[in-house]
């Protein structure tokens, strides 16, 4: 870097003193009060047995809650359901996002309008999204069964939300419908930044549609795709509303993701200990995911751009 001595002094002044901490202090105080404190409180409660409606009677049970939760098949089942849900949502919304971005990158009439409208599902409140689809999938009055009947694909109404085989695909579809536009936007921006000269050069070299996709388009959007995969993973992993409103975790435990599991333990069964234990385990699990993410980033840096 070509820093002048003055600039270098200015830069060295940046790294000194209490200013970084002073700037950080207000946000840090708030985080300590409303994020860190509840987490630590939760961790403390995980060593007790207590009922949410009668917190005066707390008994210290040590690691008993952890032993209980970790040997409870419902916990492992819920973790597996969360993985299914997250992976399903990430895959479907990425496919939709990539497909729509590739399309919106081709010139056609009304493309500007299509680009503006594609983001609308993302700006719709989660609960509205969920309610619309909830009614649309209703076996009696929902249009989805009606359309499928008219097309001759089904004969009688299917109770999509109440069948073991269909509940999870439905909530994955609804969640992906709401989340995919961010991927479209990000990937489209990356597509637009690929130099057209690269494509021209490839055509001169005789590359076909597939060749251009594989050797120019996909490498050009890989970094952005990674970002959008991370974003969608974060959203899907912690999501509560869809699984709760559409299926309440059911039928049985087919869609009981961890966020619903934690909630039910606390506010349906009032079991403070197991719920706090779950919250703490989620914290540890999330920490593991962040570490894996940082590792991935560092691994990516060694690769040629």
């Amino acid at each position: 870097m070509s820093a002048t001595p003055l600039r270098r002094r200015a830069r060295s002044r940046l790294t000194q003193g209490a200013l970084p901490y002073l700037l950080l202090a207000p946000a840090l105080l708030v985080i300590a009060a409303v994020v860190l404190y509840p987490m630590l409180y939760s961790a403390t409660l995980s060593f007790f047995k207590a009922n949410l409606l009668n917190m005066d009677r707390m008994t210290f049970v040590g690691l008993q809650n952890y032993a209980d939760v970790l040997t409870d098949s419902a916990f492992w089942r819920s973790l597996w359901v969360t993985i299914q849900y997250t992976v399903g949502v990430v895959a479907l919304s990425f496919g939709l996002g990539l497909g729509t971005a590739l399309m919106l990158n081709v010139r056609f009439p009304l493309r500007g309008l299509a680009r503006a409208l594609i983001i609308i599902p993302w700006a719709t409140p989660w609960l509205v999204t969920t309610l619309i689809w909830y009614v649309m999938f209703n076996p009696q009055i929902g249009p989805i069964n009606a359309i499928l009947k008219q097309l001759g694909l089904i004969e009688t109404g299917v109770a999509w939300l109440y069948l073991n085989g269909t509940a999870m695909p439905v909530i994955i579809l609804v969640t992906a419908w709401r989340l995919f536009p961010t991927t479209t936007l990000l990937v489209l921006a990356a597509l637009q930044s690929i130099s057209p000269e690269l494509y021209e050069a490839a055509e001169v070299d005789g590359a076909g549609w597939l060749g251009k996709l594989r050797f120019i388009t996909l490498p050009g959007i890989s970094a952005t795709s990674f970002v959008s995969l991370v974003l969608v993973t974060i959203s899907a992993f912690k999501l509560f509303t869809v699984a709760w409103v559409m299926t309440a975790g059911g039928p049985g435990d087919v869609t009981r993701v961890l966020s619903v599991f934690v909630y039910e333990e606390a506010f349906r069964f009032f079991r403070v200990g197991p719920s706090s234990t779950l919250a703490t385990l989620l914290f540890i699990l999330s920490a593991g995911m962040v570490v894996a993410y940082f590792r991935l980033l560092q691994g990516g840096r060694d690769e040629p751009e």
Partner: peptide, 13 residues
């Protein structure tokens, strides 16, 4: 890390 945590996990505290 905090962005990965479901809102329901801080509800009790």
């Amino acid at each position: 890390l905090t962005q990965l945590l479901p809102a329901t996990s801080v509800l009790i505290p």
